[in-house]
C-alpha cells in the first residue's frame, strides 16, 4: 500500500533566542493509506504541532514531510490551500463550525469552492449527513445542535470533499465519553467504508482503544508506536 504520510526527522522549535521551545525533537513516522491511527501523549508533548505540520498549517524547522506523495514543506500557501481543500479533512476540538451556516451549508462550503455541481453537492451532503446520524437536522444552525451533533457536522464537513486523509485534533475532548465513543465508532466506520485515512490526537482511552494503531508522543519524541492494547498503558 502507498504511504499517505511520510515524515522524516522533523524538528520544530518555537520562539527565538533564549526562550526556544523544542516542540518536536525529531519525529520519523509514516502512515499507510487507509490506516486509523491515534496519537496520545501528555499536554505539551507536540501532538497539535505535529498535526499542524502534516496539514501544512505550520512549517517544520527542519525535516521532510510528505503528504499524499507531495513535499509539503516546499509548497506555497496557495498550493497548501489547494492540498487541504482537496485531499485533507480537518476536525478540531470544538466550535469549529461557521455559526451563520446551517449543518448542510457548513458541509457544503468546501464543495462549492471545489466547483462541485449543486445537484452533486446535494446528493453527497444528504448522504453524508444521514451517515453521520444527522438525518433531518440539515437546516439547523450550530447553536441549535448539541456538542456531539456539532462534531458530527464537523466530521461531515471533513469527509464531504472526499479527502484521502482526515486529521482530527482531540475530536472528542469536549463531549461526554458516551458521545465520544459514538463519534469514534462513526469515524471508524467511515474509515472502513470509504478507505479514508484517519490520524487523531487524544488524551482519552475511548479513542485509543478504537484505533488500529497508536503512537505516543513525549517531549516531542515518539515514545511508543504499536498496537493500542500495549500502548494504552504507556500513554
Amino acid at each position: 500500500m502507498d504511504k499517505i504520510i511520510n515524515i522524516n526527522n522533523v524538528i520544530k522549535d518555537y520562539g527565538q533566542g533564549d526562550v526556544i521551545v523544542h516542540a518536536l525533537r525529531g519525529i520519523t513516522l509514516s502512515l499507510e493509506c487507509g490506516e486509523f491511527t491515534s496519537m496520545a501523549g501528555p499536554s505539551g508533548s507536540g501532538k497539535s504541532t505535529l498535526l499542524n505540520i502534516i496539514g501544512g498549517l505550520d512549517k517544520p524547522t527542519t525535516g521532510s514531510v510528505e503528504v499524499d506523495g507531495r513535499d509539503v514543506v516546499s509548497m506555497s500557501m496557495a498550493q497548501l490551500s489547494h492540498l487541504r481543500r482537496n485531499r485533507i479533512g480537518f476536525i478540531f476540538q470544538n466550535y469549529s463550525l461557521i455559526p451563520v451556516l446551517t449543518a448542510y451549508e457548513n458541509a457544503e462550503y468546501i464543495l462549492v469552492l471545489q466547483g462541485v455541481s449543486a445537484k452533486k453537492r446535494n446528493e453527497r451532503i444528504m448522504d453524508i449527513l444521514k451517515e453521520v446520524g444527522l438525518d433531518g437536522m440539515e437546516n439547523r444552525f450550530p447553536r441549535e445542535l448539541s456538542g456531539g451533533q456539532q462534531q458530527r457536522v464537523a466530521i461531515a464537513r471533513a469527509i464531504a470533499p472526499e479527502p484521502a486523509l482526515v486529521l482530527a485534533d482531540e475530536p472528542t475532548a469536549n463531549v461526554d465519553s458516551k458521545t465520544g465513543g459514538a463519534l469514534m465508532d462513526l469515524m471508524r466506520k467511515l474509515n472502513e467504508e470509504k478507505g479514508i485515512t484517519f490520524l487523531l490526537s487524544t488524551h482519552e482511552k475511548i479513542v485509543m482503544e478504537r484505533a488500529r494503531r497508536l503512537f505516543v508522543l513525549k517531549d516531542g519524541l515518539i515514545e511508543f508506536d504499536g498496537s493500542p492494547k500495549e500502548g494504552i498503558n504507556i500513554a
Binding site: L57, A78, S81, H82, Y109, I110, L113
Partner: peptide
C-alpha cells in the same frame, strides 16, 4: 482561521 485551515483560498 478555520476556513483557511480547511482549505479556503485567500
Amino acid at each position: 482561521g478555520i476556513l483557511k485551515a480547511i482549505g479556503t483560498s485567500p
